[in-house]
């Protein structure tokens, strides 16, 4: 079989498979994501308001809120609830900061059996590591560009 013929065959098969494969239930998924994601943000707003009423600075409020939400995400992952929520809510529970906590706790728990150093310690970041790399990396870049522009 020539290379072109092979590519054509693969393309045909791919199109055929696409037609046979069930499509995601978009509407249901979107509604779930919207509601759960929205509710987690409402909880975040509530925490924000409580701290603001305690006259904390904006930066401290933001940090405290993040820490509390991360604790909640971690805790509900630990007791085995967050994955069940995620199954329904999808991005609704992945995209909020609680989902970031879930992405750290889940592998940490999973790889405990490989030890506390190379298991928990190393595998904790298999999913969240890239988030930090690109988040921190791009923020430094933004800082440097800001300096360049405002020189």
């Amino acid at each position: 079989m020539s290379k072109r013929e092979k590519l054509r065959k693969e393309r045909d098969y791919d199109a055929y498979v696409k037609q046979k494969t069930p499509k995601p239930t978009y509407l249901k998924n979107v509604i779930w994501a919207f509601c759960v994601g929205g509710l987690i943000c409402v909880l975040g707003q509530f925490i924000t308001n409580v701290f603001e009423n305690m006259n904390m600075s904006e930066k401290d409020v933001s940090t405290a809120r993040t820490i509390i939400l991360i604790f909640l995400g971690a805790f509900f992952t630990g007791i085995g609830v967050y994955d069940k929520l995620g199954k329904r809510a999808g991005a609704g529970s992945i995209v909020p900061i609680t989902g970031f906590a879930n992405s750290i706790v889940a592998p940490a728990m999973e790889f405990k059996r490989e030890g506390y150093i190379f298991g928990i310690g190393a595998k904790m970041f298999i999913l969240a590591g890239p988030v930090l790399v690109y988040g921190f990396g791009s923020s430094v870049l933004v800082g440097l560009i800001y300096l360049l522009i405002n020189k």
Partner: peptide
């Protein structure tokens, strides 16, 4: 799951296929 996909407690969705 842990070898090929994601940790058990990760809250993601499985596709229909």
């Amino acid at each position: 799951e842990r070898q090929y996909r994601f940790p058990l407690e990760l809250g993601n969705q499985r596709s229909l296929s």
